[in-house]
Design a protein around this nucleic acid. Structure first.
Lengths: 111, 111
DNA sequence: GCCGCTAGTGCGCATTGCACAGTACCGTGC
DNA sequence: GCACGGTACTGTGCAATGCGCACTAGCGGC
């Protein structure tokens, strides 16, 4: 019944978004969520991000190391490896092409 | 295991794409598939489009009428009603904002 | 001690795109 | 007449993925 809500838009794009954030610098789940929200993806669920990180790690696109913190529980940092960087590049290209196609389709709507 | 494939990108966007195509003019399933493919969405599955049309119709965003054809089976035409037009407008806006956010995120990747 | 923030895990659900099979109409070629 | 390919739609079941929710746990402030 709902119009396109971002939760559906995120499908298949959250991977790229997460990879993009990690491309900037290594990070841990809680922080990735914060950065994505700051970037404008305000309603990403935390569970989605944690899930995505685990999935990408399992797929071999990310490295992982645990760092203790003074201000709370340990942090599980993730970082891109070569596979992840390649995946990010490929996905970014795919996304750009796809977005262009969609903009084309919607162009006439605004007319 | 796969990089962002269009099937996941389509999630939540096929609705808008279909609405956009119908905005141009009334159409039937088989034709919508053809037009989407011509527009650049080359690997949309036909079942997805038929499913989307049925879903949108059930949701009250589309009108439907059957037209006989000389060159094959009857055609079930769909068209936008006011609900559908509103949904298209809203979804298009959401998409545009979302795409802008994503482009922003990916901007640094290309650097 | 309790609360709230930080940080992570696991479970189960809903949505949705798709493959696949099946039905059926039509014209062409044999 | 019949097989075949293109047109056109339906239904079933699957897989991917984002999310809500519950839970664990460390930390500091009241």
């Amino acid at each position: 019944m709902q119009c396109v809500d971002s939760s559906q838009l995120l499908k298949g794009v959250l991977d790229v978004a997460v990879l993009a954030v990690l491309h900037e610098r290594d990070s841990y789940g809680y922080d990735v969520v914060r950065r994505l929200r700051e970037a404008g993806l305000e309603d990403v669920g935390d569970a989605s991000v944690y899930g995505t990180l685990r999935r990408l790690f399992r797929a071999g696109s990310l490295t992982s190391y645990v760092v203790a913190s003074d201000e709370g529980p340990h942090r599980k940092y993730y970082g891109l490896n070569s596979v992840g960087r390649a995946q990010l590049a490929a996905s970014a290209t795919t996304w750009t092409a796809f977005a262009a196609t969609m903009n084309d389709l919607l162009k006439e709507v605004h007319a």
